[in-house]
Design a protein around this nucleic acid. Structure first.
Lengths: 263, 263
DNA sequence: CGACTATTTGAGGAGTGTCAAGAGTAGTGG
DNA sequence: CCACTACTCTTGACACTCCTCAAATAGTCG
């Protein structure tokens, strides 16, 4: 099955999973079967999923950004992760009946819906796709781990610099950012909620980094002016983003399964 | 296959996965085949896995505690998660050749080793086990998400109280803690590294909570003296620990797969 | 233009970190 | 059984990062 026969949702997910492995026809067929429903649109600020509410559909994001967040009873909010095109919303949604976090559109966005329980069928039908989904889960865990380091052990200055370097690296590898420029629909309040800081302090930190010539923040876009020094400020090392293909031994194991069947 | 025919590693993992679903014979056979190597021992302080080093075996922890952590170039350390019996070390280890975090024994411990690539074969052979592994991954993500909330938005006092309530809930559901007492091999330095605080401040916070009669900290053990008030301090809600079985619809989907095959 | 929303700046304070030193608490070896 | 060593834990004094409150400025969109 050629890429252009697939739905937009399948293509978006495929683009991401291709970072990890070139999916075989069986995997592509399974993927296409999963994502065969018409796409949906959300406006900025709307929830694709609400903390405490019953789960509905899962999605693959096609265009736009979203944030997964948890809110405490007194209103304090922590953003757990940013979701960009190709990322899944509620991939493991079938497992808990009630959502433990919210997913909110940060910009107008479009997404491809799918049934949460479909993930099991998907895993059973294509070992290669199963491995790719495990990879995607592992990658999310890596990113959350690096965020834990930021929140626990990095200064405000380091957190801000690290966030932009991460977003830049994530967008670049999927062709969504070029040069030192990136389009990000993030307000300072959103950055604050992601980094565990107050809006006021985020503002001061951004202005300080700008004054030092490290970056320039414009409305909904950021320019990284001195990437070398930004790396030094944070000790940024993009290994955790897992922008590389499957290791040899895993590929060999998979090939054996595909050839001889799972038995 | 009866439980007592299995290796200790398979039994430990099974005990954990049973929180989610009663595994069928096919799943149990697959699990037993995965964990058929002799167990290994580590002393307190030793690494089961070292950040920056090539990956070796993966493990299921049988007895004792471990911590997964990342260390910055200047020595600052952040603990990402605590691992207790039944938890897996490097479950997704086959996917990245180099370890992005360390796993260190917090007490003397024993573990059952397995080949990292075996996870793929496991997924292909038993859809039920695959679903259980996805559940385990989703649960880890939930716990990390709650830790992000702690580090980003909770005060020292709230973080400490929340940590002990979490550990207590996790141990109790596996029968490793009774009453209001829990055995934890945690020094104040380790608690500090987990909560993103300094040792000094952890000490002050613990003493304050003790002075208020909320908990009593003894050498390697903690007593939660006023659980109701501890819940109030933190707004603790254990839903995120996913101590419940598989939802109906997912169970139905799985049953269909097991009966009619993945085709 | 008017109503919002987002950004920016100032002043003062609370929460945590750092540095330093003393007191417990094992474990080790003579 | 007692010194000796190495961790831990505890406490005090002080500094600093970051937060809160408040208000002005700048964008954005109907």
């Amino acid at each position: 099955m050629a890429t252009n026969d697939m739905s937009p949702g399948a293509r978006a997910l495929l683009t991401k999973l291709d970072l990890f492995a070139k999916l075989d026809p069986q995997a592509r067929r399974t993927l296409a079967g999963l994502l065969d429903r018409p796409q949906v649109s959300y406006e900025r600020g709307q929830d694709l999923m609400t903390q405490g509410a019953l789960r509905r559909d899962s999605y693959v994001i096609l265009t736009g950004w979203a944030a997964r967040s948890k809110t405490l009873p007194d209103g304090r909010r922590q953003i757990l992760s940013f979701l960009t095109p190709g990322d899944a919303v509620g991939l493991f949604g079938a497992i808990t009946p009630v959502a433990t976090s919210s997913v909110t559109a940060l910009s107008d966005l479009t997404a491809a819906p799918f049934a949460p329980t479909a993930i099991v069928r998907t895993i059973a039908r294509s070992p290669q796709l199963a491995a790719a989904l495990v990879w995607a889960a592992a990658r999310e865990q890596e990113i959350m781990g690096e965020h834990l380091v930021s929140l626990g052990r990095r200064s405000a200055r380091e957190r801000v610099a690290h966030l932009f370097l991460e977003l830049w690296a994530r967008l670049k590898v999927r062709g969504l950012a070029g040069g030192d420029q990136l389009q990000v629909p993030l307000t300072q309040q959103i950055i604050a909620d992601a980094l565990g800081l107050s809006v006021v302090h985020v503002n001061r930190t951004l202005r300080q980094l700008a004054a030092e010539g490290l970056l320039a923040v414009k409305r909904e876009s950021v320019a990284l002016l001195d990437i070398r020094q930004l790396h030094q400020v944070t000790g940024f090392d993009e290994d955790y983003l897992m922008h590389h293909a499957m290791p040899q031994d895993l590929a060999a194991e998979l090939a054996r399964l595909v050839t001889h069947g799972p038995g």
